[in-house]
Design a protein around this nucleic acid. Sequence first.
DNA 1: CTCCGATAGATTGTTGACAATCTCTTGGTT
DNA 2: AACCAAGAGATTGTCAACAATCTATCGGAG
Lengths: 218, 218
Amino acid sequence: MTAAGDAEMVHGHLADLVREAILVGELEPGDRLVEADLAGRYGASRGAVRAALMELAHEGLVERLPNRGARVREVGLAEAIAITEVRLAVEALCAAKAAERVSDEQIAELRSLGRQMQTAVATGDVEVYSGLNQLLHRRIREISDQPVAAQVLSRLRAQNVRHQFALARRPGRVQVSLPEHLAIIDEICARSPGGAERAVRRHITSVLEELQRTAEEV
Amino acid sequence: MTAAGDAEMVHGHLADLVREAILVGELEPGDRLVEADLAGRYGASRGAVRAALMELAHEGLVERLPNRGARVREVGLAEAIAITEVRLAVEALCAAKAAERVSDEQIAELRSLGRQMQTAVATGDVEVYSGLNQLLHRRIREISDQPVAAQVLSRLRAQNVRHQFALARRPGRVQVSLPEHLAIIDEICARSPGGAERAVRRHITSVLEELQRTAEEV
DNA sequence: CTCCGATAGATTGTTGACAATCTCTTGGTT
DNA sequence: AACCAAGAGATTGTCAACAATCTATCGGAG
């Protein structure tokens, strides 16, 4: 019996498993990803692991140095800012399109989400708020019905999870974040594309400022 | 001697060769990409071809159906519009950042590019104009110094080359396009981020309208 | 004591063969 | 004539062994 548990053979795309392990924090930036190890751990062949690592490298989550193996990529602050800038641009587009296309049911859903976020902040439940936050952004993407933007965003978000997480835990962050999110919801529900775009811009701009603030706090 | 030429072993990343073949039009959408064929054609092993195809699939240029092989992906008009919408958002960001960072030498270079484009239009040389067009957009990306945006854009552009090409050849298109490009150059050279962003928005919006027009002309 | 080179171990890269899957053809049946 | 089933051929998916490369350790020379 090994300490890490038996080799569980899982065929649900190996890349998904490793990606999840990285996103959850089970694997940290800098950790080496040795093909043979992962093959044993997940009960897959080395070839499958190789393919999965190449996939994750293309997504920007993993770094592959020739003949030196793969490791979980470290996303520095400068790059995190660059990523967030692009996110700003694309999420603004999504919000505008969502405001054009949103249905009555979806308006009710978004409003409900907003109320849930308010109560989460009121009760100080940062975990729940963070989850609702992600859910809100995802629903906006879905409503916008812009698959290209959705794909770009999901990749950028994956690269940034670590910073996103650190940011959410900063004291006082939620108090700033909540009204911004509520404004986004209001504008989309008012079916105002321009307003929604501006609201998203304000929100992610404030995220950017927070990021730059952490940069100065070295 | 085979009709297709001898197997030339080239090690300059196989994916680049196939990508170029697709971008140039040597391989058309729908064409099957049989691993053994490509392996023979480029004098590489099947494993290398496999890796290259996976890479191109991640870039969105190739479609890989399980157990059915790969083919050059067909990008429909609806998707081309979606891609262009995202391009609009990200290129606007690039232009704004470029306007903030542009140096005096770069201003001279952009102005020179603008003059070359004018003469190309005056002499009716669409080929040259198209090349200068691409060069302009690339230089703006480089000046903006936003690697994340640059990577996103290069991928989106690759998926859209076919439509982009068809659009450039439409009669009267250059006459609309030229002043828009000159406006972008002017705003960047005036170091006006907001103006540059609006200029890019106007330009790509006009591209979008042209695309939608082709959609109606079925 | 430090620095340099050689050797051994570990890890990735590549190849060829085999297995699984799909497609197209062929022949029979209703 | 249309439809279905079976088989052959083609193509992709997987695997294990081998080669190439890198990293760490050890011994010797300055």
